[in-house]
Design a binder for these strands. Structure first.
Lengths: 120, 120
DNA sequence: TCCATATTTCATGGATTAGTGAAGTATAAG
DNA sequence: CTTATACTTCACTAATCCATGAAATATGGA
């Protein structure tokens, strides 16, 4: 990931409405959610929601597919992983002082050697 | 870390000048750098630099201390670690699909069991 | 075809952000 | 005490962001 992409991603997430959307879609998983359902869940006007989804999509953090009249948005896990990787690796140089706390969660969710724990 | 703090941090980093400052200070380590040295290194006007440093400081990502006529800024590693932890844990729910790439770097910089590698 | 639903696009206005010249504050040196 | 250095603060403008009403587009059903 390049620096400009990282900045676009950070900007997209640096907004309470958009961060809420992203978090909701992470919880929703690969199946994603229809734009209207997201709007109702977060109590946001349809056009406002559309603009917010566009920003996240343009940052590559969301994928979109049409299903009938609805458009289903889903979090792009790979892209988010790349952003986090950029922050730890390129931005922070993998300093132990910074990424030590991450080791714990990486350990929990992605055991390095043995079988991976199911998570949902 | 709370969501509003995370947003403040993301906003602070979502700017090319400020991200460059932060990266420079991460490289500089705990000793930090004087505001003027940062400004010269990044070819930025003094007052512009001051404003950018203020944003990062207000987000808690930098610490500042006076040394004679200079003011020394340093990256707050703990805070950055907390931001990354928020993004992986609270925002992304520690999903393996997202944090798997992080496991590698966490593995490299912070070995879980054995002695930690020195890193300059 | 006509209508309802789902979402987006456009236009607008208000709020926030960002860079800069000029002035102000703090420290050090002569 | 005066002057220089190091930064910050202030005032201002340009640019960008953001929410919203209104209109447009796309799909599905009667």
């Amino acid at each position: 990931m390049e620096m400009t992409d990282a900045i676009t991603g950070l900007s997209a997430l640096a907004h309470d409405g958009r961060l809420a959307i992203f978090r909701l879609l992470v919880k929703a998983g690969p199946d994603g959610m229809a734009a209207g359902d997201i709007a109702r869940k977060l109590d946001t006007a349809a056009n406002t929601m559309s603009a917010q989804l566009l920003v996240l999509s343009n940052a590559g953090l969301l994928t979109a597919r049409r299903d009938g009249r609805s458009i289903i948005y889903a979090a792009d896990f790979e892209r988010m992983g790349a952003l986090l990787l950029y922050l730890t690796e390129d931005c922070c140089g993998g300093k132990p002082e910074i990424c030590a706390p991450l080791a714990a969660i990486a350990q929990t969710c992605c055991p390095p050697k043995k079988a991976r724990r199911a998570n949902a």
